[in-house]
Amino acid sequence: MFALIGLSASYYLNGYLFNAFKSSKMYDPIVSRSSHFEKATRSGGMALFFTFCICYGLGKAIYSMSVDLYALISWIFIALTGMADDFFSIKYREKFFLQVFAAIVLLQSGIYIDSFHGVFGINEIPLWASYIVSVFVFIVIVNAFNLIDGIDGLAALLSIKFFLLTAGIVTIASKEMYLVIPSIVGGITGFLFFNFNPVKKVFLGDTGALLLGSVITFFIFYILDSDNYIIADDFISRPFMVVLLIIYPLADTLRASLIRMYKGKSPFLADRVHLHHRLIDKGYNHWGASTLILGLSITVVMVGVFASLLLLSLTACSLIVLIYLTIIYYIFFN
């Protein structure tokens, strides 16, 4: 039901905000890096944010839906940062500090990475290290989702995949939070109908990409926080599962940053070295490229989970996934 509420609210709000932006001629500027030539607005993130507000209000009132207050504040703060960037194009350094602040607020929820769960032979880590690692992971994931928002539907579809595959874990573990996921999935689905619409084209913008990234990071913290019960513990390592769930944003960001550094450029420079740009340059349209990446990232999850179910060690599982990623790269992206 909450998915339907989210879908309806998002569909209405996206249409409404598109018209509002259009009447003010607030279109996304078309630059050399742009993969689109239609007039499009960056109102998708705002619509998503309002959709979540509506769903949360209803969920809180009717079904005792609840997310930690600090997490909510952090999400709102990051959404406002995104809005500021969409409207005024704030500098990267300023955006970075605002993201660090949002990460620190999120840590106040008491949900953060407090253990490596056996990765590198490390389990529980000191509080100060937890904070540093958590802030770093927050910055990386939030920006990774922002960076993959380069073609239609990609960030949205990969977010839906993340939320759907995480829904089972959260539903088992937290009665208060599981309604968050259908609300967001509904909201993103409503947005997708506009994202692929050439006449009323809507982009997530920084608001949407940063908001989705921060919500995803919160759920990743939830999974990696050793205080929380995660039903998948019996058959898969938590960090391994998290990496599988966000494999494309992580792999793409890492690859793009390495290429830029190799070329002596800033790793944060905006350009067209992303894997999805490569697909577009190879002749895929946006829909084809996004669904291909979505399908491939699901197969990566399947390979990883299957390797884990075979009771292989974490190193062996990681190696199998790495080999599979290399094969995928050479078949589809090379």
Partner: peptide, 30 residues
């Protein structure tokens, strides 16, 4: 997820051949 992809595929197929004509160009996604 499969259902969503099917629905979006149908939708995309429907709108994919929609071209926008403005003052000096014609365009479609990308």
């Amino acid at each position: 997820l499969t259902l969503l992809i099917i629905v979006l595929s149908i939708y995309h197929k429907k709108v994919s051949q929609t071209y926008i004509v403005d003052e000096n160009s014609i365009s479609i996604s990308g």
